[in-house]
């Protein structure tokens, strides 16, 4: 199970497990992000490189358009570890 919801113009909530099976579903949601948003990981249990790739592409699009970036919040320890292994903690604001 995976879900991504835009709550308002400022927040995207993630739920479940974000692996390669979920890329298209996630892409549809993140393509709607037009400016700086908080991505709330409270409900997310797992992420693989496929999920990281979607976040990175969204960050790239926003940065290149001068429209801010993603602020990632409430990650569990395993997910935070994956960001560190990949070096993604250097690219995103993680709080």
């Amino acid at each position: 199970m995976f879900d991504a919801k835009i709550l308002d113009d400022k927040t995207v909530q993630l739920f479940g497990r974000f692996d390669a099976a979920q890329v298209e579903k996630a892409r549809v949601v993140f393509d709607q992000v037009k400016g700086p948003v908080e991505v709330d990981f409270t409900g997310l249990e797992y992420i693989s490189s496929a999920g990281l790739g979607i976040l990175l592409m969204t960050q790239r699009r926003l940065k290149e358009g001068g429209r801010g970036g993603l602020r990632l919040t409430n990650m569990n320890k395993h997910i935070r570890d994956v960001f560190q292994y990949a070096g993604f903690d250097q690219v995103f604001e993680i709080v």
Partner: peptide, 22 residues
């Protein structure tokens, strides 16, 4: 090259990087 990958937001190869690292 993760420094270049991240600074230029490259695509692909990340899964392999994780496997080799972990």
């Amino acid at each position: 090259d993760m420094k270049e990958y991240l600074s230029h937001y490259r695509k692909g190869g990340l899964g392999l990087h994780l496997i080799r690292s972990l």
